[in-house]
């Protein structure tokens, strides 16, 4: 498994803590949503960063506002694409002002990464071989121009004339940029 962010593969500064594991006194950790809810006081008092992981299929909607203060939130994708996490991402970024790392975990595949990026995810735990290979080659598939605004947390330009059009920043899409209007036309 590797952690990928825009710009390349990166070190994961966070350690995944199982619910049964003792809480280490230092070092950044990720705990489950259940543990966060039951041990919130201890976890908030801890000086080192604590991120929260939401498992695939969990109904996280009620907890989004609460989680928005965390430095990291990991949302897991189940095998059969459960699209709720795309809306969680938009709500976290655009409604609750979450500015920490939003990490996609679970079934993260190359064809969905561009959509996840546009919803506000900025880190991806990748296991799938072809996905790793494509990311290593700097290849993000799909159009780099879009028919609707993305999350406000995503840097995109507005190529006009229709106000809802967007274009990904050029450096996000090293190889797959199609012909199209430039940002200033």
């Amino acid at each position: 498994m590797a952690l990928w962010r825009l710009g390349g593969f990166a070190d994961d500064g966070f350690a995944r803590l199982a619910d049964a594991d003792a809480l280490p006194s230092d070092g950044a950790v990720i705990v489950s949503l259940g543990r966060w809810l039951s041990e919130r006081e201890t976890l908030t008092a801890r000086p080192a960063p604590v991120g929260v992981a939401v498992e695939a299929g969990a109904d996280a909607q009620a907890h989004l506002a609460d989680l928005a203060g965390r430095p990291l939130i990991a949302l897991a994708f189940a095998k059969f694409a459960d699209g709720r996490a795309f809306s969680y991402a938009r709500l976290l970024r655009d409604r609750h002002g979450f500015r920490g790392e939003l990490r996609a975990t679970g079934d993260v595949l190359i064809d969905e990464i561009p959509l996840m990026l546009r919803c506000g995810f900025d880190a991806f735990e990748v296991e799938n071989g072809p996905t790793l290979a494509a990311l290593e080659a700097g290849r993000l598939p799909g159009p780099a121009i879009h028919y609707q605004p993305a999350s406000g947390a995503v840097a995109e330009t507005s190529p006009g004339p229709r106000p809802w059009l967007r274009a990904s920043a050029a450096e996000d899409r090293p190889l797959s940029r199609p012909r199209g209007p430039s940002a200033d036309c």
């Binding site: 064809d111 121009i145 028919y147 797959s176 199609p178 199209g180 209007p181």
Partner: peptide, 21 residues
């Protein structure tokens, strides 16, 4: 317009790649 055409062209390219894979 150029934007719409570029969008469907990019989508075709993406699907061609998916079929190849």
């Amino acid at each position: 317009d150029d934007f719409d055409q570029a969008f469907v062209d990019a989508r075709v390219a993406q699907f061609r790649d998916q079929v190849d894979r």
